[in-house]
C-alpha cells in the first residue's frame, strides 16, 4: 500500500428528497418535521436536510468520534464518507482503501451456505481467487462454524449468525475504517471475543471514524470528536472537551429530538 490515506470534505450538504411515500420515508419525514429539518430544494421538492455544510479534514493517524442524538446525521455522514451518498453541495476527496461497517448483515443471504457467503463477500471486495480460501479459513475459524460451513445460514443459531456477520465485516483490513454504532452492541460474552479482533483492526487502520452512543468507547478510541446536531456541526475538537460539553447537554439535546 503506497498511497497515504486522507479525507477532505469541504462544505458538503445532503438532502433526502421524499419520494414514493413509503412507510420508511414517511416515518423519517415525521421525525424530521418534528425537528424542523424539512425544507424545499430548488425544484420545490420537500427534502430532509440530513447534513448541512460539513467541513472535515482527516489525515493518517486521526481517530474521529461522531456523537449526537438520534437523527443527528451520523450514519448519513458515514455513508457520504463511504461514497454511498453523493452530496448535493460541496466537494470531497477520499483517498485510500476503505471499509464501512454500516450494516451487520451486508449481503448475507440466509439461503446460502456459510462458505458461499464468505466467498461472495470476498468477491464484493474484488479479492483474487487466491485470497478467497484464506478469507474462508479466517472467517470460519473466528465464527466457529465447524461443520456448519457447508450448511445454509438459515439453520445457524442466532449467535453463529452474529459471529459470522462480525467476522465477515472485520475480515478485510482497510486504511480508512468507518464504523456505525450497531457494531459495538452485542452481548457481553461475544463482545469479549470480538473486542480483540476489532481493536486489531482499529489499530491497523490509518484513519478511524466511529459513531457511538457509548462515550467510554469514544473516549478510549478517539482523539477528536465531532458533535452533530440536526445535521450541523455543533462542536469539533479534542475528545475530552467535546464529550464533556456533549454529555453536559445530553439530556436537553435528547429531549428536543424525541
Amino acid at each position: 500500500m503506497t498511497t497515504e490515506a486522507s479525507i477532505d470534505v469541504e462544505g458538503i450538504s445532503v438532502f433526502f428528497p421524499l419520494y414514493h411515500g413509503s412507510s420508511r420515508s414517511l416515518k423519517k419525514m415525521v421525525v424530521a418535521a418534528a425537528a424542523g429539518r424539512l425544507a424545499k430544494d430548488q425544484q420545490q421538492r420537500i427534502v430532509v436536510q440530513a447534513l448541512r455544510d460539513i467541513h472535515l479534514k482527516l489525515r493518517s493517524g486521526d481517530r474521529l468520534g461522531l456523537v449526537g442524538s438520534n437523527g443527528a446525521g451520523k450514519t448519513t455522514l458515514l455513508r457520504v464518507l463511504a461514497g454511498i451518498y453523493e452530496p448535493v453541495m460541496g466537494r470531497m476527496r477520499i483517498q485510500g482503501s476503505l471499509n464501512a461497517l454500516l450494516d451487520p448483515s451486508l449481503g448475507m443471504n440466509a439461503e446460502l451456505t456459510g462458505r458461499e457467503n464468505i466467498r461472495l463477500r470476498g468477491l464484493y471486495n474484488g479479492l483474487p481467487n487466491a485470497s478467497l480460501s484464506r478469507l474462508e479459513d479466517d472467517v470460519a475459524e473466528f465464527a466457529e462454524l465447524g461443520d456448519f460451513i457447508d450448511l445454509p445460514v438459515r439453520i445457524y443459531s442466532a449467535g453463529m449468525v452474529v459471529r459470522l456477520g462480525f467476522a465477515l465485516a472485520t475480515a478485510i483490513k482497510p486504511q480508512i475504517l468507518l464504523m456505525d454504532e450497531w457494531f459495538l452492541a452485542g452481548d457481553a460474552a461475544f463482545l469479549e471475543k470480538a473486542r480483540h479482533r476489532l481493536e486489531e483492526m482499529v489499530k491497523g487502520a490509518d484513519i478511524l471514524v466511529l459513531s457511538s452512543h457509548q462515550d467510554e468507547i469514544v473516549r478510549a478510541w478517539c482523539s477528536r470528536v465531532l458533535w452533530l446536531d440536526q445535521g450541523k456541526v455543533r462542536a469539533d475538537g479534542p475528545s475530552g472537551e467535546v464529550l464533556d460539553a456533549y454529555l453536559g447537554r445530553e439530556p436537553a439535546a435528547a429531549a428536543s429530538a424525541e
Binding site: M1, R93, I94, Q95, N125, G126, I172, K173
Partner: peptide
C-alpha cells in the same frame, strides 16, 4: 486476511 483490494481515490 487481505487488505481491501480497492485502493480507490474517491473525488467528487
Amino acid at each position: 486476511a487481505t487488505p481491501l483490494a480497492r485502493t480507490a481515490v474517491l473525488e467528487f
